[in-house]
Write a protein that binds this DNA or RNA. Structure first.
Ligand code: MN
Ligand code: MN
Ligand code: ZN
Ligand code: ZN
Lengths: 137, 137
DNA sequence: AATGTTTATGCAACCGGGTTGCAAAGTTAA
DNA sequence: TTAACTTTGCAACCCGGTTGCATAAACATT
């Protein structure tokens, strides 16, 4: 289908099955992060475990990243092209308590955190809660 | 029982039932945050929903705070005396991928985050993952 | 002390997100 | 064509969290 998306799959070493193309397409259309149950509801007849495994594969290969915004369901969003999900690639996420959407604030990198001595840092998860611009008019 | 702990309950307007005294005692003994299932396992015959509601009450009254470290189970830790869980009271949390403990890094306040225009901030959740000092010898 | 009212507890059942085992279908490589 | 591997679909399960409801305990009023 979409040549662009197929490329994204290929460069991440993911075989472009029909299912995966569809899932990536849906993910790419989202303006905010989406959960597995939400994704499920976007398809008529898709099996949850297939979608689940598709997301897992995507995440493993760094095509998407997941956000735990504290709502109980992991949210997913496509990584930007060159992302490797290393600390310097990470950004802040925002959960709106009104519209319940979770935004990637890709312009806001996670700040440096100075851990106590002998603590090793591997990743940082920052979720800010509040009211988003759309809900704030 | 413990006069200190009873005071903590009173100053937070929580009636000091036997159950609540016990739960607060266990919580106070922890060096790292503890989940409901873990708490459950510290008692012989405690009912889950009672413990659940006890934690909820404690959290509502700001006697304890909860941490979503991404493991699937919320962790709880006692707030410090004067805490109101406002952004300026919040600290960074650390999840050790080796020992699976979640630490309150009470000395590390959450940094300021400048949100995009029209976004209102209510709370900030920061969880750093890595290896803790104990596991790093 | 006896009564009614509020609050806390215990039990059971449920919910929802996530996860797995396994067999069938599809793909790829000899 | 056959064999090996990968992906999909289905069903069943796990676990943390949550709720309705009945009982018990605490509290207040007479
Ligand atoms: Mn993101
Ligand atoms: Mn803490
Ligand atoms: Zn919003
Ligand atoms: Zn550790």
């Amino acid at each position: 289908m979409d040549k662009q998306l197929d490329n994204r799959l290929q460069t991440r070493n993911i075989k472009p099955t029909a299912m995966r193309q569809l899932v990536l397409q849906v993910l790419s259309e989202q303006k905010t992060a989406i959960s597995l149950p939400e994704l499920e509801s976007k398809f008529e007849n898709a099996d949850r475990s297939t979608l689940y495994r598709t997301l897992k594969t995507f995440e493993e290969r760094k095509l998407i990243h997941s956000i735990d915004d504290g709502t109980g369901a992991l949210k997913y969003a496509v990584c930007h092209e060159k992302c490797d999900c290393h600390p310097e690639d990470l950004h802040v996420h925002f959960y709106c308590i009104k519209c319940k959407n979770t935004y990637c604030l890709t312009d806001i990198p996670v700040p440096e955190i100075n851990l106590p001595v002998d603590f090793d840092l591997e990743s940082i998860n920052i979720v800010v809660k509040g009211v988003c611009a759309n809900c704030n008019i």
